[in-house]
Simulated scan of single mutants.
Amino acid sequence: MFASLRKKVGVAVAVAGALALSACAAPAPEVSGKLTVWTEDYYVAIFEPLAQEWAAEVGIEIEFVTKDFFEMTNQFIAAVPAGEGPDLFIGGMATTLLVGNGVVAPVELGDKANLFSANALAAGQLDGVQYGIPFSIENVAVYRNTDLAPEPAATFDDAIATGNELVAAGSADSPFAVGVGPDGNSYLLMGLQSSFGSTLFDGEELTIDDQAGQDFAAALADWGASGAINPDMTLDIALTQFKEGRTPYLITGPWDLNGIKESGVPYAIDPIPSAGGEVAAPFAGNYAVYQSSEATNPLAASLFLTDFMTRTATAVGIFEGNKTLPALIPAQEEVSTDPDVKAFAEIGATAVSIPGLAAMDQVWGPWGETEMAILRGQAADPVQAWIDMGVRIREAIAAG
């Protein structure tokens, strides 16, 4: 089962008035009919006003269908072979999974490929063939309340010490906020895990349970027992505490930036402080648009990818909604003066890509479950629980 990489809290502020689409775009092939797009509520709010203007320009109808964030990828995979899927799917980059299930079609960008960040574009490829058209490059970081913690923490231990002092003084409710509950959130914790030197795979060989991973498991147990990381803290609680000035630190991504700005809390965006002595490298994630292999309007779907998704105005419009670095280079240049975008981009320079392996589908569940068991003190031996997790993952991968 495809596990989500992260869940956005609520729906970001919709784009305030669709950006005018470029009137000087190259002539497009004539299209007609209707396009159907599936995505989560967050991106319906951002994409729809932009796409409706483009659809009117090229002479088609476009309908956005809201899908549950956690279920939509599996729903898309099931619906396409049955002839019940959309023309286009907007979601987290899952190229290996989608191509492996035969549910997405290749796209020819030609010279327009040069408009995109090479790394982001590569995440949408398999065996040199382009399938997904990226629009956002994201990673998590630490939002720091500059009233409660005027200076960045040098290490995770330093951050927890500062947070504990604030809690003891009655100035904060939590020393550090990260939304892991109730089912785990390995995506948000990866930065801390990687600072122990822990990786998931070396090529196709599973490495998550090596000595570095075991060291992280031991640290998780300490953090859970001390209250440094609260296993009952959900994404909503973590974000609310930070917005209300009740915690000095929050791990999340740019998708929460608009809400944090609106709250009025003073903030800075910092790298995740190292817990294990090495650089904390969060995941680098990409969001993309895919064309269904069974699209009912393939010509219009292809035009959406090669025309609408390659326009600077589109990419900037999406950025205004999600505050995530655009994958389109001309749009990156246009928004590069935003200090928050610059901060996330600098932190993202150390980010690691999510392994583009079908085996990752067998990793997310046991990984998150084991982290939560350790944080809750339910694992009598945290290191052995981590080793057992590795055994479970290998068995699941072998079973297909």
Rank of each mutant, 00 (worst) to 15 (best):
F304H: 02
G365W: 07
V341T: 12
F304Q: 05
L299T: 14
P326D: 02
L299P: 11
E320H: 10
G276P: 03
E346R: 12
F344D: 01
E278S: 13
N322T: 07
K342P: 08
A288P: 10
Q291C: 07
D338S: 15
T310W: 06
G365S: 13
A288I: 02
A295S: 15
I318K: 04
A281Q: 15
Y287P: 03
A284P: 04
P355Y: 05
A358P: 04
A373T: 08
P282D: 06
L325E: 02
A343S: 12
P326A: 02
L305T: 11
I354G: 06
S292L: 11
F283S: 05
V316F: 02
A280H: 03
Y287Q: 14
E278M: 13
E346L: 14
N286F: 14
P298N: 06
G277M: 06
T370M: 12
L305Y: 02
A301R: 07
T337V: 10
F304W: 08
A284H: 01
T370N: 13
T370L: 12
G365A: 15
N297F: 10
N322D: 15
V363Y: 03
S336T: 01
L325A: 04
A358S: 11
T310V: 05
R311N: 08
A288L: 13
K342S: 13
E334A: 14
N286I: 09
V279L: 02
G368Y: 10
S302R: 12
R311S: 12
S302Y: 00
E333K: 15
A343W: 06
I329C: 03
T306I: 12
Y287N: 14
T310I: 07
A281D: 03
L299D: 15
L357A: 09
E369M: 13
P273V: 08
Q332E: 05
T310S: 06
P298K: 04
G277P: 07
T312W: 03
F304K: 04
A345V: 05
